[in-house]
Amino acid sequence: MLEVRGLRAGYGGTEVLRGIDLAVGAGEIVAVLGANGVGKTTLNKVLSGLVPAAAGEIRFEDRPIARASAAAIVEAGLIHVPEGRKIFPNLSVRENLVLGSYRRGRARRGANLERVFALFPRLKERARQAAGTLSGGEQQMLAIGRGLMAEPRLLILDEPSLGLSPLLVEEMFALVKDLNREGLPIMLVEQNVVQSLDLASRAYILENGTVALSGAASALAADPALRRAYLGL
């Protein structure tokens, strides 16, 4: 689905990504893990066409997209649910969801809206409510629902558990698992190492803009270097 080779990018004269290689296959959940400041959000922005790649190759379903516009990338079905939700607080829940189908999925907007409401009954209850009045967990549901309205071929979730209570974190990871069971490939970008590795089939650990470790999630969870660095064991 997604292949990244030798990706370099940054801001001004500061290089943030220093030669990233990664891939996401059909039907996979692939975790991209690391602490704050290692380049996770920059990676997502480059993949989404919001930050230009300085070097390297990005292919989505075997088509080069490293120089494609953000609109073209969305139209291709690579959908990014950003860190911090980025909802439109003064618009209603329904209006936020409808905007998710602006570039892609417009023909089946009604059916997709009902699917999102079936996944998130709380959003249906609050359909006419201003999105900014929702709780943090509800806003995260809304952000994911808005992404699903675009009928993603691959969904990038950037820190979906950030700021949520432990109970809501469990619900969020259960949702990710359910979406994947329906056949949706997911790139899960997280700081929550333990639960992400439990959910994913493969994982990449980023450090200082490079891939420090990669492989099967189960093998990485048992890796002594990772356990020392991230789990304190």
Rank of each mutant, 00 (worst) to 15 (best):
V211N: 03
S161D: 06
A200Q: 03
V194L: 14
F173M: 12
N192L: 14
S196M: 01
E151G: 05
K177G: 07
P152T: 12
E170V: 08
M172K: 02
E171L: 04
E182Y: 11
S196R: 01
R146Y: 04
E170W: 01
I186G: 00
M149C: 06
Q191Y: 05
M187Y: 00
L154E: 02
N208E: 14
L179K: 11
S196N: 02
E171Y: 00
T210H: 05
G147P: 02
L168C: 00
L162N: 06
V189L: 08
S165H: 09
G147A: 08
L157F: 03
D198T: 11
A203D: 09
V169T: 06
L167N: 06
A203N: 10
L157M: 11
G163H: 11
L179E: 10
K177E: 14
V193P: 05
V194R: 15
I186T: 03
F173Q: 04
A150K: 08
E207C: 11
G215F: 06
F173T: 02
L157S: 04
Q195D: 06
K177D: 13
E182I: 10
E170A: 15
L155M: 13
E151K: 08
A203H: 08
L213K: 15
L164C: 10
N208Y: 04
M187E: 01
N180G: 05
Q191I: 05
L154T: 02
G183H: 08
L167H: 03
E170H: 08
A174P: 04
M187I: 03
V176G: 06
L206D: 06
L167M: 08
E190Y: 08
L184E: 07
L164K: 12
E151W: 01
E182W: 11
L206R: 07
A200V: 03
I156P: 01
E171R: 11
L184N: 10
G215D: 01
S201E: 14
P152F: 07
L168I: 14
A174K: 15
D198H: 12
D178I: 04
N180Y: 09
G215T: 03
S161K: 10
L155Q: 11
L199F: 07
L188M: 10
